[in-house]
Design a protein around this nucleic acid. Structure first.
Lengths: 96, 96
DNA sequence: GGAGTATATGCGCAAAACAGCATATGCGTC
DNA sequence: GACGCATATGCTGTTTTGCGCATATACTCC
């Protein structure tokens, strides 16, 4: 069931993180917290959640942990993610 | 934000209801409870949640309340729903 | 209008989610 | 090894979510 995926995405900070990571680049926790205005522990925990859901992968790089989209995300999950990101993007345009 | 949509779908009974409603037909609460093995109050409340999220619409028909997919679901929301249902269907095939 | 069926809802409870704070851990530099 | 920066995690309190039970409401049939 995609329940785990949906739960992971159904939270503003986590969805925000996914929108940032959607650029395909790696981002460290410190960047994410800054851009999403989240505290350190909050951001770290949310990234754990996304990782457990299989949406992202992390990599230690010196003092940083760099997160990026899970490149091996299964097709159906990837389709959900794309649809969600597209919807989120649409809304932001609408609000502008 | 699609947060509301995602939250609504991120619950097994509600997702199950959406899978049933995906046939395009109307279904009364009693059918849904039977097929999803849910108590009456539980099913009723879950349907309220789906309704509030805009995913379904209801219609009184004599003693029954018939639910069906919201035909006016906006495009991006519809896309999410379709992706989620497809993923759910895939998993069930995998399990079989 | 009384009984029966279908649905919604108020209430209380238990479990889960989320946040903040403090602290631990990993890594680099000196 | 001491210090500093980045990240993770234990603990605690608060809020939210989902549930069951009882009851209210809507409708039909007699």
């Amino acid at each position: 069931m995609p329940i785990a995926l949906l739960s992971a995405l159904a939270e503003p900070t986590r969805l925000g993180a996914m929108q940032i990571l959607a650029d395909g680049q790696e981002h460290c926790v410190c960047q994410l917290m800054a851009r999403l205005d989240a505290s350190q522990s909050r951001m770290s925990r949310h990234m754990q959640t996304l990782k457990q859901a299989g949406l992202v992968v992390d990599r230690r790089d010196a003092q940083w942990v760099r997160y990026r989209l899970n490149p091996d995300l299964p097709g159906p999950a990837r389709a959900i993610l794309d649809a969600v990101l597209a919807a989120a993007a649409t809304e932001q345009r609408t609000a502008a």
